[in-house]
């Protein structure tokens, strides 16, 4: 797979067109778009999206890998560019560069148990993994999804979570930090559900995405249960301006998060996370 390369300059985007917008939460939208020359992506990769006149930010791809006819992103309205992206309507045009970054090693997890742990908006970058697991369910061992959200109203992809929960070949636990009276699910942190999950630690590949603190605790929790650090993969977030290792902003110790990551394994990341403000 190669990045779109219609220009010799990798910093020059191509035009993409929004074909569908879905509001997931009050501050989160998922939109589909089309772009000429798009040749698909691997789960875990991201695109650089430009709103003309506003700016450009990296956004992970949240749709299925198997459908390269459309490009799907889920965006939370937190900054000027993401606000502009979240405000785009069907038919709007934007700039697209990508896909960039190292993918989740989903293929390598074939024949093994898979534990996916997501927190908050971190469900979006792991959704392509879940699609892949569902589509090729027979290739994988036991599959578990643990998802933590702030409150019942902040649960992303709630309808899909319901569908996944109803499957007999997958364990899904959703927990919230703060419940309201309507909520009948778990209350507490997502790591509390690691112990009860059904997987063989020695033959498990774990994928974690969420706030860094949550990923640290989850990775440590998995190691405590016997999962090898090299089998635990997480997606890091750093400032990215180019996405291709030229601008220098996303450095994390010796790594450029944009090109050496964003997906790293815990054996690599753990020593770096011990250093504050690296």
């Amino acid at each position: 797979m190669q990045a779109i390369d219609s220009h010799t300059d990798p910093m020059v985007p191509v035009i993409a067109k929004v074909t569908r917008v879905t509001r997931d939460l009050s501050d989160v939208v998922t939109f589909e778009m089309e772009a000429e020359g798009w040749r698909g992506f691997a789960p875990g990769q991201f695109n650089m999206l430009s709103v003309f006149g506003v700016g450009e930010i990296p956004i992970s791809i949240s749709g299925p890998q198997s459908d390269s006819s459309k490009i799907i992103h889920t965006i939370r309205d937190v900054g000027p560019v993401s606000h502009a992206l979240a405000s785009l309507r069907t038919g709007a045009v934007l700039g697209l560069r990508g896909p960039y970054g190292t993918p989740w090693p989903v293929e390598a997890a074939k024949g093994r148990d898979v534990v996916v742990v997501a927190g908050g908006l971190g469900l979006a970058p792991v959704r392509p993994i879940l699609y892949e697991l569902m589509e090729n369910r027979g290739d994988y061992g036991k599959v578990t999804l643990l998802y933590g959200a702030r409150s019942p109203g902040d649960i992303l992809f709630a309808e899909e979570l319901r569908q996944w929960r109803s499957r007999l070949d997958m364990g899904v636990e959703v927990t919230v930090d703060r419940a309201d009276p309507s909520w009948h699910g778990h209350v507490g942190v997502v790591t509390a559900h690691l112990r009860g999950a059904d997987f063989d630690p020695k033959a498990t590949t774990a994928f974690i995405c969420g706030p860094e603190i949550m990923m640290r605790f989850t990775a440590n929790g998995l190691v405590d249960l016997g999962v090898a650090p090299g089998d635990i993969h997480l997606s890091m977030e750093r400032n990215m301006q180019c996405g291709i290792g030229l601008c220098g902003h996303c450095q994390l110790g010796p790594h450029f998060v944009c090109k050496d990551g964003p997906v790293f394994d815990w054996a690599v990341i753990k020593p770096l996370m011990r250093v504050k403000e690296l």
Binding site: L121, R150, G188, V189, T191, P211, I213
Partner: peptide, 19 residues
């Protein structure tokens, strides 16, 4: 200890938009 720790993490409100 685990409950105490989990409570601390819950208090951090990790998934708020600011994080």
């Amino acid at each position: 200890v685990e409950r105490l720790h989990d409570t601390r993490v819950q208090m951090l409100d990790l998934y708020s938009a600011g994080n």
